[in-house]
Nucleic acid binder design. Sequence first.
RNA 1: GCCCAGAUAGCUCAGUGGUAGAGCACUUCCUUGGUAAGGAAGAGGUCGGCGGUUCAAUUCCGCUUCUGGGCUCCA
Length: 615
Amino acid sequence: MEQLIAIEKDGEIIDLQRAEAEGVDPQSGRPIYFDNSPEALQVIRHSAAHLMAQAIKELYPDAQFFVGPVVDEGFYYDFRTGEKIGEEELSKIEKKMEEIAKRKLPIERYEISKEEAREKFADDDLKQEVLKGIPSERVSIYRQGDWEDLCRGPHLPHTGYLRRNFKLTRVAGAYLGGDENREMLTRIYGVAFADRETLKNHLKMVEEAKKRDHRKLGNELELFIFSEEVGAGLPIWLPKGARLRSKLENLLFKAHRRRGYEPVRGPEILKSELWKRSGHYQNYRENMYFTEICDDETRKESCVEYGIKPMNCVGHIMVYKAKKRSYRELPLKYFEYGVVHRHEKSGVLHGLFRVREFTQDDAHIFCTPDQIKPTVQEVLSFVDEIMGSFDFDYEMEISTKPEKAMGDDEIWEVATEALKEALDGSGRQYGIDEGGGAFYGPKIDIKITDALGRKWQCGTIQVDFNLPERFELEYTDSDNSQKRPVMIHRAILGSFERFIGILTEHYGGEFPFFIAPTQIIFVPIGEAHLPYAQELAERLMEMGVDSEIYGGRESLNKRIRNAEKQRVPLVGIIGDREIENRSIAIRDRREKIQYNLGEKEFLNRIKEKLSEVRF
RNA sequence: GCCCAGAUAGCUCAGUGGUAGAGCACUUCCUUGGUAAGGAAGAGGUCGGCGGUUCAAUUCCGCUUCUGGGCUCCA
């Protein structure tokens, strides 16, 4: 009963037009019907992109088109026009799309040679650009009505399939070919499904996800703010945010100590000479901030340039160099909650996810080459424990040598292999990001997704042979010879800022007890019950648990409502009954139930909750 | 940095070429309440900043700061 729109054969989606042209028997592949299967959506969205392009062409006759692919969340088309396209134009384009869809234009396909295509689109430089990227000699063109475009397909049989089941979501700029040195085209994003109902549900889901946005929750829960007066990308931590953060810091501090890491601390600014030696000055300068210290303001010669640290490695190297090292000491693990400053381009700043000042849970491990693999594996299991404690799914990716890099290819090869081996040994799946490494070494990145499914890099493990070389690090080996250690840079959360942003979205503001900014709110029913609440609050404070008391003039219902709105794990109600038998009436957010606990039980329960996590 | 939007009270948001409003929050008073908004009154805004057009700009234009969605980049 469902309509066949394409078939899948040898992992390729072949639409009916192409099947006919190539004489492919539609029975010979797996049928793809007009529904919401991933394969069908590819076809639908591809055609939606074309429909949009046709609508744009009718509305803006000067429009020229680049590419219009299907992406995870929908589709987009990049194009150029003399007109400015803003959000307001989207509904206009949608209307035109509806209109064209109604015409039920057949979507036809034909093939020509690349040479013919070059001539056909002789006066369209964007199409020429697309043609350059096509390896095959024959190219296909899809035509609907009087509009046609160079396209591989697959497509729907006719435009009538696209009726009120698509939505244009946003306008954006996109560089031609993703190259920031080239022209910027207009890009319009959209989504499409087989039916209107699914589209509506999808849009609703996106709306729901936006409610979990850490910027919105951060504001509502008074975790942090940004201030125009202070500057872009410089978060200000409010008491509740700082409470959450310090809990995370404390837990993680112990976790490091337990694993043999030593806390160290480097300065915020270091002489530029040192950044030249490390290579940051040459390779990372555009991301750094600099300042000068002058002995004599009137004499320029007395000024020395300092760089504000964008990374903590140089400081840790100085710790290593503080004395002569023996192989017996290795691996040496130094860690620091290092505050770093990076000049991020204004357009990339994004709540706590991308800021200009942030604190990394950074560590540098100095080890022998033989220790690389076990050390990386140990770090990987550390990562696993932390992520597991927060129920995070994460992805890992190896990033290889970037264009702007220092060190020999050979060294890079060895380091990259070491990472791969460690990962292979751990049995974990991982992807590869060619050219995505740091300038001093390859890395394993740990990525977590936010409420909207966007991926953010959090933890990172980097193998570095370059900095030990540049700083001539040495240790005395068992044969009394001087050897060069390897440096492993690693962060597990990545930065507290980004990690807390992700945590906020992950939990929708309902933080687990052990890190919740306020772990319990007491609501004494009347004034007489206040002292007992205060007594409990003090006991909890001794245990390192933050509580608040919502007493005062407001009605009981209102105070309970306000307490719940704070999304605290526990709300404790205290009235005559509770005082009489030294108990607390608890509203448990996670269990979604209410129960009564005697004081002792209550304190025990709190202890249990605190020890739920240990990493 | 680039493209496209936006900025009105602490927060969420209406609104207008004739210098502004709501709800919540805040202050005061009444209410002392057993599980998600008790009542009344009040205070609070150079309508992000700087210029321009105009008799008159929060409103129109330009620049700037900040924010949002992307691109590029990245913890």
